[in-house]
Computed example of a mutant assay.
Amino acid sequence: MDTVRLRRLNRWQAEGLREDLADLYVESSAAAPGEEFHDRQKFLHRLANDVQLPGFDMLVAEARSLAGCVFGFPVPRDGSWWQGFDGPMPQNLEQLTASGHVFAILETLVHPHKHAHGLARRLQERLLADHQASLGVTLVDQSDRSACAAFKNWGWQEAGQIHRLPGPTALRVLVLPLGERTAEHPDGLAHNDQTQRPE
């Protein structure tokens, strides 16, 4: 079994690795035959936009070659990320967002090798810990049942739906609470004093 090494990349390093990341995306996704090129181009377009987000961060896993990656950015404290949330916004999500303790995972990619077992969760947890997040959040297309099932296997919980433009598609909001589970907050959706972010 190859040793897997985790390494953080800044936006310039991520852009330099864009073709390898796009290859990993195609290899790790279940694209319909003939759609690989189109899906790869869409991923490259998303990546080009995502690296421009304030606080963008990426963590890659490398063995002999690129084995996985996860990237995201800190959710802005002003609550703008939650626009389009279906129904009333849970108060604890608002409070954690305002305190600057929510980190959005935009993409998780893992090469379908045997040595990659547990790698996606390890990458996500490390990136969230590096950002001292009390809550991880991600959006998953309603129709992507396999991605939703994978996130739930990694401990993520469904928290509602959000509508993003363009298009009428509602996306599932999944959260990964990292706070301590207490009688007051049995869901773990509480600010964790151990992860106080510097102002």
Rank of each mutant, 00 (worst) to 15 (best):
M1C: 11
D2Q: 13
R5E: 12
R7Q: 14
N10Y: 14
Q13W: 06
L17I: 00
L17P: 05
E19M: 06
D20I: 00
L24Y: 09
E27Y: 09
P33N: 03
F37H: 11
D39L: 12
K42Q: 14
F43I: 01
H45F: 13
H45W: 11
L47T: 03
N49Q: 14
D50E: 10
F56R: 00
E62G: 06
R64W: 10
L66C: 05
C69N: 07
V70Y: 07
F71T: 01
G72T: 00
G72Q: 02
P74K: 03
P76M: 02
P76H: 04
R77T: 15
D78N: 13
Q83I: 05
Q91G: 12
E94C: 08
E94A: 10
L96C: 02
A98Q: 07
G100T: 01
G100P: 05
F103R: 02
R121E: 05
L123M: 06
Q124L: 04
E125L: 13
E125T: 05
R126Q: 10
L128I: 01
Q132E: 14
T138I: 02
Q142E: 14
R145M: 07
S146E: 10
A147S: 13
A150M: 14
A150S: 13
F151P: 00
W156I: 00
Q157H: 12
E158S: 12
H163N: 11
R164F: 11
P168E: 15
P168M: 10
L174A: 05
V175T: 09
V175N: 03
L178H: 04
A183S: 11
P186V: 03
L189K: 01
H191M: 09
D193V: 08
T195N: 11
